[in-house]
Design a protein around this nucleic acid. Structure first.
Length: 116
DNA sequence: TATGCCCATCGTCAGCTACT
DNA sequence: AGTAGCTGACGATGGGCATA
């Protein structure tokens, strides 16, 4: 009897188990199961049912796809945020200039009135 | 034209957070 | 505890530009 091994399939050609990341060689997937050989000190073979392997692969691909899109969205939002900040800087710089000018003219007015 | 450098963009991973 | 989403970090890739 073969016991299905619950694994997290990492990148193509790799396998994550409790003992770490291993390189994979998969063969004989036609009959609904696969002989999976991976590099360890011992000459180990695990039997992983095909549907399970396919399910893991499908899940991983879905996760990657979602993350890819999430990353795109995240970058878009970040750009937008930076643009907003830059706009705000521009607005505040203009306000600052205007206030400096106003202060200057008020000072001049004050000096004029003082000398009169 | 070939080469090296810089920059922007992308995909992936890892870690964190919020939710169930 | 498990899961999904978000985001910083990292490496790969391609385009533009200056220089030999």
């Amino acid at each position: 009897m073969t016991i299905p091994l619950i694994v997290d399939v990492i990148p193509a050609g790799a396998l994550q188990t409790e003992s770490g990341l291993h390189t994979l060689a998969v063969s004989g997937t036609a009959g609904g199961g696969a002989i999976v050989q991976y590099a360890t000190n011992q000459d180990d073979h695990f039997y992983v049912p095909g549907p399970m392997l396919e399910d893991q692969t499908r899940k991983r691909e879905l996760r990657l796809l979602k993350n890819r899109e999430a990353a795109r969205e995240c970058r878009r939002k970040k750009k937008e945020y930076i643009k907003c900040l830059e706009n705000r800087v521009a607005v505040l710089e203009n306000q600052n200039k205007a206030l400096i000018e106003e202060l200057k003219s008020l000072k001049e007015l004050y000096c004029q009135q003082k000398t009169e």
